[in-house]
Amino acid sequence: MILISVIIGSITGNIDEVTQAAIDSAKLAVELAIGLIGIMALWLGMMKIAEESGLIQSIAKIIRPLVVWLFPEVPPDHPAMGAIILNMAANILGLGNAATPLGLKAMQELQELNPQKDTATNAMCTFLALNTSSVTLILPATVVGLMGINANQIFLSTILATTMSTIAAIIAVKSLEKSQRFAIQSPNKCEEIEEDRLISK
């Protein structure tokens, strides 16, 4: 990208501007980041209070039935289910720092249930699709910092957009897991079960 800029800048005679832009942008980057500290500190402080007051657990209770329905392969009382629910609750609250360790825990527990250790299970794919679609109610601190007072409006638009992407993720993952192309390939029992399931569908 920088190489293209220098070449095109030379052709169009903008090479001085290109140099100036490099210097100005580097300066701007630091100014921007420093400017974010205040709002981000405020926001992350608030979110820490939310975390300490058990908001993750409250959200977890609300979403539990939905999550149990989304993961028919995982027994509802298995530790994997608990980790999945807590990870999603943390994501909903925009608590990325709290969500990642819970997500890794959920993957470990799901791996316990996995008969074929190098291949993802349906539950794992569903879990990751939901994670990448970013179910969220609260904006990341960086976005609040950058948008300032306009962040108010971004809350609703983000909730709506993320709802759409989450629905898309669920539909995609649930229809793709039945597709022959993504079936688990291995000459063991696992495949037979998978095939039986495909035939019965």
Partner: peptide
Amino acid sequence: LVAIGMFRAS
């Protein structure tokens, strides 16, 4: 920001 800034200025 440097890459995009140069890209824009060019």
